[in-house]
Design a protein around this nucleic acid. Structure first.
Lengths: 195, 195
DNA sequence: CAATTATGCTGAGGTTGCCTCAGGTTGATG
DNA sequence: CATCAACCTGAGGCAACCTCAGCATAATTG
């Protein structure tokens, strides 16, 4: 428990900011094409920067991943808040889950990182994961209150299901993406039957 | 399509067989404690063998993983056949899925390897995956024929669900294993309601 | 029981990726 | 323009991967 975990911050000097941005751009590209274990030295050289500079801005791989995915996940959280206003809470939950699966599988290896961050404070991505947890939990609660989703489902379980779907999508690299159907089955499984 | 993919075979000379077995034992231990990306040099030295010897017997990591998991998965397939004789086909399917999840998550990283092998011939584990596919598909078909499982569920989808559960279990390393509940939710989701 | 041979073993070494840190450079500030 | 904190560089130590030339030995054969 030593204060706050490092969240990469935009540096103050102009050259620092330039490099920070270049590294981030290179990292996004590399992660997307090679997964979360892309070579950091490649990323640095793609960004036109020495390896030490990369480590200055992003002391760990996890911190770089966090920075590279922050925007997308922030959007996801924001979307949850917007969806909460929808008249049909099951619709809202469904749409959000679909979107979440896509964001969770932005690149190979991300779901695993997020899943671990979810319950491990002191991880760079933990704050964002906690925010998503809140957003998802709210949508779930609303759907349950409306009697549309089985009431014994917890947010943790929801995220397990979600992560499972994202993982399936991640594996899908070439061809055959089973995640839409996976999610459909899960959704039909957790909704209450209106007979 | 070049003949058969390498499946590690027990070598002919006595010292060869000794080393083969020692490597396999060391590999099982290492995979279990460090995951599928355990150091091969560590494994070799634990087995009391030079690194070249390990590569002689197992030219790729995948071939070592295959050999290390073969027995367990063979048992799983055999069990599917035994279960097929059960009077209640839903019971049989349920029990087999539970067991499969455990075997799929023998060590961190295995599910991913199996999931990729499932549809990629030319992978060492492909043969075993195909056998499991058959076994699972038979149990599924029986449960569907008995009207106990939704008829539109394909074996591929079943394996996606199964792999998702195993993946969740894999992540559970410390505390919180969500896979039993995951599987329960999935099972309740795919069974037909008898109202 | 050699002699022969195929099978197997060794471990140095090339390659890549990780990460650190001592020393040099430069943007910001007054 | 002088100062200095912020920043950058890249060599180098470490670990893991994988290959291969040369040596060792189990099995076989006469």
């Amino acid at each position: 428990m030593d204060g706050k975990p490092y969240i990469a911050q935009r540096p103050k000097r102009a050259d620092g900011r330039r490099n920070y941005d270049a590294i981030l751009a290179a990292a996004r590209k590399a992660f997307e094409s090679s997964g979360a274990d892309a070579s950091l030295e490649d990323i640095a050289s793609q960004a036109g920067v020495a390896i030490g500079t990369l480590y200055r801005h992003f002391p760990t791989r996890a911190s770089l991943v966090e920075a590279a995915t922050r925007d997308g996940l922030e959007n996801l959280v924001a979307h949850a808040e917007r969806l909460a206003a929808r008249p049909d809470p099951l619709d809202a939950l469904t749409e959000w889950m679909r979107e979440a699966v896509v964001h969770f599988s932005t690149f190979r290896g991300l779901v695993g990182i997020l899943a671990r961050s979810m319950y491990d404070e002191g991880t760079p991505s933990h704050a964002m994961c906690a925010a998503m947890h809140r957003g998802g939990a709210d949508l779930l609660r609303a759907a349950q209150a409306a009697g549309r989703v089985r009431p014994d489902l917890t947010p943790e379980e929801l995220f397990d299901l979600l992560s499972g779907a994202a993982w399936v999508r991640e594996q899908a690299a070439s061809g055959r993406d089973g995640s839409p159907r996976f999610l459909q089955l899960v959704l039909e499984g957790i909704t209450t039957r209106d007979d």
